Simulated scan of single mutants.
Amino acid sequence: MSHIKITAKPRLATEKPKAIRRQGGVPANVISAHQPSLAITLSTKDVQKLLTQGQDSALIYLTIEGSPAEVPVLFDEIQTDGLTGQTLHVAFKQVSLKAKTKAEIPLELVGEISTPNLVLVKVLEFVEIEALPTDLPEKIEVQISGLTEAGQSILLKDLQIDTTKLHLVASEADLDGPVVLLQAPRVEVVEEISTEVVETEVLTAAKPTEAGEASKPSANQKAGADSQSHSSNKA
């Protein structure tokens, strides 16, 4: 695992997060189990460099201005704007280099599927690993070239990791679950509508209209009826 060094500035309580972002910074906190949370400010460029290089699971040595000691930390939480993608806040977890810790490690698919008509489904994006901070990998590779038939999968317990240093944090049921699986593509069945049914519905819908028109008296019939009524009254 690569060791990355970045520098941060102490953040005063009077400094507002929006103002920090406008000035090209990212508000952050260092969380420790043995002392209060430490408020700091990072450079936006440093944060974006870490994220774009896929090093959000890397061990980071943090130097805070005014303090000579380096603080080993891991990313704990990254808050981003859902619309712009801007990093709003970062939370680090301070770790001890001599104590095991837990971290989510991304999975990277390696190889190619030789059967083009099948669909590869990636079930998990991350796995939780427990290890010493210096032993945590940046990623875990999943070799998929061996998948050739629909229904084949790679289970969580089958991941190739150094079990002398790394421990998968998962239940027995989760260990038997798939990380990736190969499926046949779904085929949608479209039902055809019978032409006879459509024509019958049209004719049936037309009959009430014809009957309705037939029940209405014509102009001549109406005139004759009026004439008979007038003659009767005259008599």
Rank of each mutant, 00 (worst) to 15 (best):
V197N: 05
K165G: 05
S32D: 15
T84A: 15
S96R: 07
V202Q: 13
P10V: 10
R186C: 00
S67Y: 07
V47Y: 01
V119T: 15
L136W: 03
Q221F: 03
T200R: 10
P137I: 14
E77C: 01
V198K: 07
L156V: 09
P36A: 12
T164V: 02
F126N: 15
A28V: 10
P137E: 12
A8M: 05
E191W: 00
E191V: 12
L42W: 06
P27D: 10
H230I: 15
L42A: 07
L109S: 04
S227E: 13
K139R: 11
A150P: 03
T115M: 04
K5V: 07
A225T: 09
L136C: 09
M1T: 09
G224H: 08
P10R: 11
P217T: 11
L38H: 08
Q143K: 11
V73S: 03
G66I: 06
K9H: 13
A8C: 08
T87K: 02
G54P: 05
T200A: 15
E191N: 12
D76F: 04
E210F: 14
L147M: 06
I40F: 02
A33Q: 13
D162A: 10
V71N: 04
L88Q: 10
E199W: 10
G177I: 01
E112I: 10
A28F: 09
M1W: 01
K49D: 13
I40W: 00
Q152R: 07
G111E: 06
L155R: 13
G25R: 05
L74H: 08
A103K: 04
R11W: 09
L62D: 03
S67F: 12
L50D: 05
P10M: 12
S67C: 03
V142Q: 08
T164W: 00
A173N: 05
L50A: 02
A206E: 11
L132E: 07
S231T: 15
Q221V: 09
E213G: 03
H167P: 00
S37F: 03
P116Q: 06
T164R: 08
L38V: 12
K98H: 10
K98I: 04
G146S: 13
I64G: 01
S43E: 11
S231H: 11
L156C: 09
D81F: 06
E128K: 14
T84G: 08
A235W: 06
L147N: 06
S171Y: 05
L147D: 11
G146W: 02
I140N: 02
L107T: 12
T209Q: 12
V197I: 14
L181E: 15
L182A: 04
A28C: 10
V71Y: 00
L83Q: 12
G151N: 07
E141F: 05
K45P: 01
L156D: 09
I154R: 02
L62K: 00
I64L: 11
Q183C: 09
K45N: 13
L118W: 08
S57T: 15
G85C: 08
V180W: 05
K93F: 02
P133D: 04
